[in-house]
């Protein structure tokens, strides 16, 4: 999650104090990803170091070399370079190259390979938990009156969590279906190797095919 770009996007609107930045960031994302003050100031310091952000010169002292200790009273603004980078954020897709480490994916990959693990139980346990989360998000969302941009933003963030949870549920269904097919293939393949592929939209049918390619991957 790019706190850096989030703060720059906010500073593109108007100069702000560190605490304002934190407040705005949280209110616009519905408090879903709380920031601590330290994170905000560390990020601001890096942005200043990189020449993207600069403290707003203060009228009386004329001091633009503001020290960190009175950072709370200092407003920050984007430099020209900062504005260019903030604009570029909107026109650049979020990179999805390297998958984030996902505990569930890792757990299931290991569950399938470590002997003696009841994979179906792992799947069902997770399904129940993910569904519980989905219920919570949905309840929160239907309780959110969308009557302004801030509420709309929050409900869209909740939608994102809802869709992620749903994707996880679908993936779990898929895992279970493939495990069932793989198990069936193991039971039936050695006999005569007959392969009569049939369409597959059930996991339960005991008359499963033997020749499907999905089986091998899970053996």
């Amino acid at each position: 999650m790019s706190v850096r770009h989030g703060l720059m996007a906010l500073l593109a609107e108007r100069p702000m104090h560190g605490y304002q930045l934190r407040q705005e960031f949280e209110s616009r994302t519905g408090g879903t990803w709380p920031l601590n003050v330290g994170q905000v100031y560390t990020t601001l310091q890096r942005l200043v170091r990189d020449g993207l952000v600069t403290p707003v010169p203060q009228g009386d002292a004329g001091a633009d070399e503001v020290a960190a200790d009175d950072a709370g009273t200092v407003e920050y603004q984007l430099t020209d370079a900062g504005r260019t980078e903030a604009d570029a954020w909107w026109t650049t897709p979020v990179r999805r190259g390297a998958p984030a480490r996902d505990e569930l994916a890792i757990k299931l990959a290991l569950a399938v390979t470590v002997p003696g693990v009841d994979v179906r139980a792992v799947v069902q346990l997770q399904r129940t938990e993910t569904m519980r989360g989905l219920h919570d998000y949905t309840r929160l969302r239907s309780a959110t009156q969308v009557d302004g941009p801030a509420e709309l933003a929050f409900s869209l963030v909740l939608d994102n969590l809802v869709f992620q949870a749903e994707a996880e549920m679908r993936w779990l269904d898929h895992v279970e279906a493939r495990l069932a097919r793989a198990a069936h293939a193991r039971r039936t393949t050695p006999a005569d190797g007959a392969t009569t592929a049939t369409p597959s939209d059930t996991t339960a049918a005991p008359t499963r095919t033997t020749g499907d390619t999905t089986a091998g991957g899970l053996r």
């Binding site: 569904m131 989905l134 219920h135 998000y137 239907s142 809802v162 869709f163 949870a165 749903e166 549920m169």
Partner: peptide, 13 residues
């Protein structure tokens, strides 16, 4: 669709 099931009070599998 889990997203719509989540509107229920409870879900049975």
């Amino acid at each position: 669709e889990p997203r719509f099931a989540a509107w229920a009070d409870r879900t049975i599998f």
